[in-house]
Design a protein around this nucleic acid. Structure first.
Lengths: 369, 369
DNA sequence: CTGAAAGCGCTAACAG
DNA sequence: CTGTTAGCGCTTTCAG
């Protein structure tokens, strides 16, 4: 049996006594008779304490604190005062368990490398916060097994909903998502079979449009510079779409350079383009897996006096802020990331039916094509 | 009294029945006598179910699932099998309440705009994940009142620890952090009074070193281009340090341009430098509030054929990856962000005494000074 | 409008 | 090694 009255705080991580500077006289710290009552130190305030101090029942306190049910003004006042005096912080863990409904929202993203994921998260967060939900985040590092583990872990917090990136998951992850009983939103991509709510844009189509743009501008000797497309599935879909259009026009990439980095990076683009140009001449345009890489390629051109787009055209993906601020704005495809996050979060909370929302994209003709 | 057996899932956000495509015959959906038993649909599996199916007691199941205490191989086997069969996902909300120790870690950051915060978070996350903790995140948008609210909200989840950015908080926020009974880590800055554990570097000193560097290279007519320094307190400290060195050498900024954006941005740097150069001639160096701005300034120079550093030297802060990949690498100060996150998280979990850790910084001499 | 009481699902003694 | 039993702090009937 647990000894009542001997309440302890969080065992492992509770603050050690007397942090730097605060002297606590060893002998006479506690004026109460020692070994009789446990020292009241750090006792966590509960709703019971508030109720007692206000002289009301616990349920009334609960009602006031959650603005639910009707309570007399006098009681409300006393309770609010008591809570403030006691510095009461409600315990949502207990609240969640009792009410069987949480204000936690799970989020699983592949990385926080470039700014695209943070931007989506910012959009999501705006909505969640306004609605009083708290995000619980996991980063999978583009590893689907890690994603699976994260999903399980997050689900164990019984969130009110969950957002994940992309449509590709392990079978077990899909099963868990399907069976967990809460709404799930898959963000960023719509090319594939979704689980519940899907909000994103078509990467296949983005790749196609990119190719059509370059072909329309009479580029024919096109190279590809990308990062690991096995890992970044959406980049792979863009490449696929691009390639399809090339084939439909009887063309092929002159050459392709895959940097083995899992995450995209400016450096990968810089190195990748340098390598490609070393072994191929006659290229007139490069399609990059995204703006990070394209930026690296652009820097390479600047440094080596390769005239863009006369000598070489460059095309990226994402429409990052920076791409329109370089000396020559980069040609790219811009996606509404903040909006995507907001739409996803709203749909998650709104309780509507399963849907697929295509937020679309915009081809931005910069000065590099 | 709550009717037993009529367990319901999360009310608000539970998945609606029959999502797209799955036809559910209205009349004969449930073969059981209607209005007698509640449909067993979606019943959430609990530890009791697992125990029953495995033919053991609940506590034994708990022991197996948490690898605690000793259990016979046969029992362990049966339990694991039962759990898998039932697709059991433990309820950590209940576990946390019962054990009074959570595996949640609160994190409050000012923004997710540029990559510095995500990088710190990546470091933090590496450690947390390895130790089985889950981050609960809040974004304050550089608003201290919002930060206060977020801290309160996050504390209500009774996290095992909390990480916040910077040392400046509202009085109430400090009080809550001090009184919450768990370890708190303040990241990014060490110039000031900390609450418990402080991990960061001195921005004042970074500003000083930057000034010393420029002065040592004989720049004397120095301008400042920054974003809102009232809001980004750490940028303000750098400016202060820089200015102090100038004064000690009988100098002053020739002119200062503050872009009213709260968050830093490449655009602010571009516009800010353009404005500054329009009203001042004879400047030989610019100190930027950080690399985002410096990058924008650099792009402005590239576009307007301002020779760097001959006509104008540029100096930033952060040491973002991209600053060493531009045609001329930018001169800047690099901070160990990933390491900072790791150290902070480790200290948080390790349970040591309150400390201040200066992770230092490195002045990177690029090609722009 | 208010209080009493029964759990939410799990963990932690304790006694086998 | 294992089952029983009290709670964790809060919400939610239900009966005043």
């Amino acid at each position: 049996m647990r000894k009542p009255g001997q309440k302890k705080g969080s065992a492992a991580l509770s603050r050690p006594r007397a942090p730097k500077g605060e002297k606590v006289p060893v002998a006479e710290a506690d004026p109460a008779p020692p070994s009789q009552v446990a020292p009241a130190a750090n006792k966590v305030v509960t709703i019971t304490d508030v109720a007692q101090r206000a002289g009301v029942g616990e349920s009334t306190v609960s009602r006031v604190l959650r603005n639910k049910g009707s309570v007399s003004q006098s009681a409300r006042h006393k309770i609010l005062k008591a809570a403030a005096d006691l510095n009461y912080v409600p315990n949502r863990i207990a609240g969640t368990l009792a009410s069987m409904s949480s204000r936690l929202i799970g989020i699983v993203v592949p990385s926080v490398g470039n700014t695209v994921v943070p931007e989506v998260l910012a959009g999501v967060n705006t909505v969640l916060e306004a609605a009083g939900f708290q995000p619980v985040i996991g980063v999978s590092n583009y590893d689907s097994l890690r994603e699976e583990a994260l999903i399980e872990s997050i689900l164990s917090w019984r969130p009110a909903g969950i957002l994940v990136a992309g449509l590709e998951h392990t079978d077990r992850a899909r099963a868990m998502l399907k069976g967990c009983g809460v709404r799930v939103v898959e963000l960023l991509d719509i090319d594939g079979e979704g689980i519940d709510i899907v909000v994103g844009s078509s990467h296949r189509m983005a790749g196609r449009k990119s190719a059509e743009h370059l072909l329309a501008h009479n580029y024919r000797n096109i190279g590809y510079v990308g990062h690991d497309v096995r890992v970044d599935i959406r980049a792979g879909k863009r490449l696929e779409g691009f390639r399809a259009v090339m084939h439909e026009n009887g063309l092929n990439f002159v050459d392709e350079e895959f940097h083995p980095s899992m995450a995209s990076s400016v450096e990968a683009g810089r190195i990748g383009l340098a390598r490609l140009l070393k072994r191929q001449s006659g290229l007139d345009a490069i399609y990059f897996s995204n703006d990070d890489l394209a930026l690296g390629g652009y820097f390479h051109c600047l440094e080596h006096d390769i005239s863009v787009p006369r000598d070489l055209a460059l095309f990226g993906y994402n429409g990052l802020e920076i791409t329109r601020l370089t000396p020559q704005p980069l040609s790219t495809i811009r996606t509404p990331r903040i909006a995507m996050g907001k739409v996803g979060a709203n749909l998650l909370l709104s309780g509507g039916p399963s849907t697929v929302v295509d937020v679309g994209f915009e081809l931005v003709v910069g000065a590099t094509t």
